[in-house]
């Protein structure tokens, strides 16, 4: 395993990302990028070789815009990027990964529908779990994995309704609740997922989210799932 030093794209560097780059008609040269790429504070490293080969495999084996790409990559990206939340909270890291390291992957997974939507896939990040193409995979794996067990992560990515409905809600930031939600909803229909996440969110106007243990969250969600079927 080779550890590679991680970098970040500076705020000014975001200006390099224009429409033609996002559409794949133009590339950014090392010379253009140099000025805007800097080492991450604290010099964290990661096993990018592992991610490189997983990405290469996906590009060769999966058709464009196939949502199954998410499930094929999430665990590999999370294992390869063994970083702290503090490091992962720097948007510049995700911008560097999307714009400099893996732009082909972003274009392969996400169809160019509008400049605004594609810009989010390259330059989103922060607390929005559903923005940057790579940040999204890492964070969902971070919130749903249990040490070496990625079964909940796999179940989530096997169902895009779950990805959309669960991770767009604020409760998804609280690990015990999001794990309970994903476990309880595995195998449920889109309608039940939609209804359950909406009703659970509504219940949180009275129930304090962080007061719930994973078992209590499961109990509450199980009841809502039964009522939603």
């Amino acid at each position: 395993m080779t550890e590679t030093e991680l970098h970040r794209l500076t705020e000014d560097g975001r200006r390099l990302v224009g429409e033609s780059f996002m559409e794949g008609e133009a590339t950014l040269t090392e010379e253009q990028l140099n000025e805007y790429v800097e080492p991450m504070p604290g010099n964290p490293t990661a096993d990018l070789d592992r991610i490189d080969s997983a990405v290469q495999q996906v590009l060769e084996q999966y058709p464009e815009y196939d949502t199954a790409i998410d499930g094929a990559l999430a665990e590999e990206i999370h294992r390869g990027l063994d970083i702290t939340r503090r490091t992962a909270g720097d948007p510049g890291l995700w911008h560097w990964l999307a714009v400099v390291r893996y732009p082909d992957l972003v274009r392969h997974r996400w169809e160019y529908r509008s400049e605004e939507a594609m810009r989010e896939k390259f330059l989103g990040a922060g607390s929005d779990l559903y923005s940057n193409a790579i940040h999204r995979l890492w964070w969902i794996a971070q919130l749903t994995s249990r040490q070496d067990d990625y079964s909940t992560t796999d179940a989530v990515f096997a169902n895009q309704t779950m990805v959309n409905k669960v991770f767009d809600r604020w409760f998804a930031r609280y690990q015990p609740a999001v794990r309970a939600m994903c476990d309880e909803l595995a195998g449920e229909s889109s309608r039940v997922i939609d209804e359950t996440t909406r009703r659970f969110n509504h219940a949180l106007t009275n129930v304090q989210l962080e007061g719930l243990s994973e078992a209590e969250a499961s109990e509450m969600i199980e009841q809502i799932v039964v009522e939603s079927r």
Partner: peptide
């Protein structure tokens, strides 16, 4: 009743108690 303190950090998507 139980009393607890929530700990939240938006930038690191962190919620705990």
């Amino acid at each position: 009743a139980k009393l607890y303190v929530t700990i939240r950090c938006h930038e690191t998507i962190y919620r705990d108690r």
